[in-house]
Each structure stands twice: as C-alpha cells, then as structure tokens.
C-alpha cells in the first residue's frame, strides 16, 4: 500500500460529507429512532421484569449496548448498502479513480466515512440517552472515541462484504447470518456470562460487537472492567487486519 494512500483520502471523505449534508434531515432520523425504540422497548418495557444486573438497573445496563449497536449499524450499513450503491449504480468509484486519487484512497476514504457516521450518530444518541438518565455526561463522551474505532472496524467489515457481493440483494446474507445473530449473543441485552461457555468463546473469538459492547460498558459503568483492556486490544488488532483485507478485496473487484 506504500505510496498509494495519501492525504487525498480526505477528498473521498469530503465528497460523502457533502452529500450527507445535503440529505441530513433524512440521514439523522434513523439512529435517533432506532436507539429510542431499543431504549423504550428493552430498557423500560422489558426492564420492569428484570432485576438489576450486578447492581446496575436494566436500562442503564442496556444503554452502552444501544450505543455499540448504533456504532455498528451506522458504519456497517454505510459501507455495505451505501458503498455498493456508489460503486455499482452510481459508478462514483470509477469517476474517482480516473483522477489522481488511487483505488486504495477511495477504499480508505469510504471506511473513514463509515467511521465518521458512527461518530456523528453516537454524538446524537448520547444526549438522548442522557436525557432519559440512563447514561451520564460528560463521562460517556469517551464513547465518541469508541465510535471512531468501532466505526473503522465495522466500516471495513462492511466493505469486505461489498467487495464480495454479486448484487445488492445478496447483501442480506451477511445481515442475517452475521449481523443479526451477533446483535443477539454479544452481551447486548443480557450479560454474556449467562450464555453457555462455548458460545461465550465463539462470541469473544469472532464477534466484534461482543468486544464493542464489553468496552462500551467498561468505559461507562462503574463495574470492574478486566475485559475492557482485552477488548480494546482485540478491536485494534482486528481493525488493522480487516482494513487490509477490505483494501485487498476491493482492489480485486475494481481493478480489472
């Protein structure tokens, strides 16, 4: 990748940003509503039947996971459906690589944009959750940093699927085979410790969301956080690896 990725990635980012600003009214609503539904349905609806977990009220237990899911969805959907539309239907990438921008810069720019969306959404969700009193400000602002890391990872994961998918329809496969199961067993809505050990191992070995949730809790809840450091390390290493895979796979698809 040497010499192929320069500061010019900012132009790719800037292009997406410009479009985002043009359509901000539509773009801002989904994360707000998603999080709101989760909070009301789980935190308050289900929460009434659930006792405190490790001394934490259920709504407060779920809140960091809602943020983590928001981070995942914002970046993952941006670099799957969003990037696929740009690549396949709008031919935006073709136009870009006819300029001094390299294909590697396009890919990295897309991942960075996915991460940016995760940060923007987190910035929208946090005050909302604070309003309901399930998360505390300004302490939880540290989750913006988590959004950047998680956004890079899920942005890169999304691009891997975009590089692989033959059509926009087949993008639903990674969604129901990977994203949805992960959303349920990553310790999001109940403590991961209540799952059988083998599943816990699988979750922590393979599921980025499990680490994102674990780190999100470690950063916001007073409970002791031995897992936090491990999760941080796992996320950093896996992010680097997946970004490299995404660049490689997209190159394969686009450079013919």
């Amino acid at each position: 990748m040497k010499g192929r990725v320069s500061w010019r990635v900012r132009h790719v980012w800037e292009r997406n940003f410009r479009v985002f600003v043009r359509t901000w009214k539509v773009s801002f609503l989904p994360p707000i509503f998603d999080s709101l539904f989760f909070l009301v349905a789980l935190g308050y609806g289900l929460g009434q039947f659930v006792q405190a977990i490790d001394g934490v009220e259920y709504a407060r237990f779920v809140a960091p996971a809602i943020v983590a899911i928001g981070i995942m969805n914002a970046s993952y959907y941006e670099t799957t459906y969003g990037s696929f539309v740009r690549m396949y239907y709008q031919k935006t990438f073709d136009a870009l690589i006819a300029t001094p921008v390299t294909i590697e810069e396009v890919i990295v720019g897309e991942i960075l944009w996915g991460a940016t969306k995760a940060v923007v959404y987190t910035a929208l969700i946090l005050p909302l959750l604070a309003l309901f009193g399930v998360i505390s400000l300004p302490g939880s602002l540290i989750l913006l940093g988590l959004a950047l890391l998680g956004g890079l990872l899920f942005g890169a994961i999304g691009l891997c699927f975009t590089a692989w998918t033959p059509s926009i329809d087949t993008l639903s496969y990674p969604q129901f085979l990977f994203i949805t199961p992960m959303m349920v067993i990553s310790g999001t809505f109940f403590p991961i410790e209540s799952l059988p050990m083998p599943i816990q191992y699988v979750a922590f070995a393979l599921m980025p969301l499990a680490h994102l949730v674990s780190l999100s809790r470690a950063l916001t809840l007073p409970a002791p956080a031995q897992m936090g450091l491990f999760s941080l390390l796992w996320l950093v290493v896996v992010t680097v690896v997946v970004v490299l895979i995404a660049v490689r796979q997209m190159r394969r698809r686009l450079v013919v």
């Binding site: 479009v19 043009r22 709008q90 031919k91 935006t92 073709d94 136009a95 006819a98 300029t99």
Partner: peptide, 22 residues
C-alpha cells in the same frame, strides 16, 4: 467514460467543484 458516472446527489456546479478537489 462511456457510462454516466456523474454524482446524482449533487448539482451541476457541485459536480464540477467536487471533482476539482480530486
């Protein structure tokens, strides 16, 4: 190129200036 790869999300003017940035 043969295929239209203008940016459908942007105006005529924006298409030109965004491209210039590249």
């Amino acid at each position: 190129s043969q295929e239209n790869n203008l940016d459908p999300d942007l105006s005529v003017f924006e298409n030109l200036v965004v491209f210039a940035r590249f």
